[in-house]
């Protein structure tokens, strides 16, 4: 289920920890599995657990605790918008509303073509750049005024 490329990346993570602490690599391994599959199916979680020699339920506990893991399929792009107070004071809520209107969906919904899932995120640690959003857990987008949001949407195809 996990590709050899994913396994090689997971091995690099395992090497960061003492030899008897393979479980420490579970967060990174789940993130890698999610990158490979687009989301985390029960099968993916189980194969990570088996590879690390931990109980599948223990890996599932981790996957369901941290909110950047997606336990259900999401669109090709997941856009998370921060609306927490510091961002809210500089247009974070407006940025979310603008996206909802543009995409015709609400938070936790995916566009009918399966392209974009919209999420309301919590503090991303970049409040000075508000409004901020993250694409697919990887790319932080700063100062997202309507013009920048339009540009981002044009890019996500």
């Amino acid at each position: 289920m996990l590709t050899s490329e994913s396994l090689a990346r997971i091995d690099r993570e395992i090497a960061k920890y003492p030899a008897d602490q393979r479980q420490s690599a579970v967060m990174a391994a789940l993130a890698i599995a999610q990158e490979q599959q687009g989301w985390l199916s029960s099968e993916a979680i189980e194969s990570v657990a088996n590879y690390l020699g931990m109980e599948p339920i223990a890996a599932y506990e981790v996957a369901s605790f941290y909110n950047m893991y997606d336990l259900k399929p999401v669109g090709k792009y997941k856009v998370s918008v921060c609306t927490n107070l510091p961002c809210m004071l500089s247009g974070g809520v407006d940025a979310g509303d603008y996206l909802k209107k543009k995409l015709g969906i609400g938070y936790n919904e995916t566009t009918p073509d399966g392209l974009i899932t919209l999420k309301e995120g919590e503090c991303m640690g970049a409040c000075g750049d508000a409004p901020v959003m993250i694409v697919n857990n990887r790319r932080m987008c700063s100062w997202m005024q309507p013009e920048q949001i339009d540009k981002l949407l044009a890019e996500l195809k």
Partner: peptide, 26 residues
């Protein structure tokens, strides 16, 4: 070594952070 979180504010609490490095819920 660097260890990344994955979206849990509570892991900023030092003992939750340690649990998280150990590969558990924070």
């Amino acid at each position: 070594f660097a260890h990344h979180g994955y979206g849990a504010y509570i892991c900023g609490e030092e003992t939750a952070l340690l649990e998280s490095i150990e590969g558990k819920k924070g």
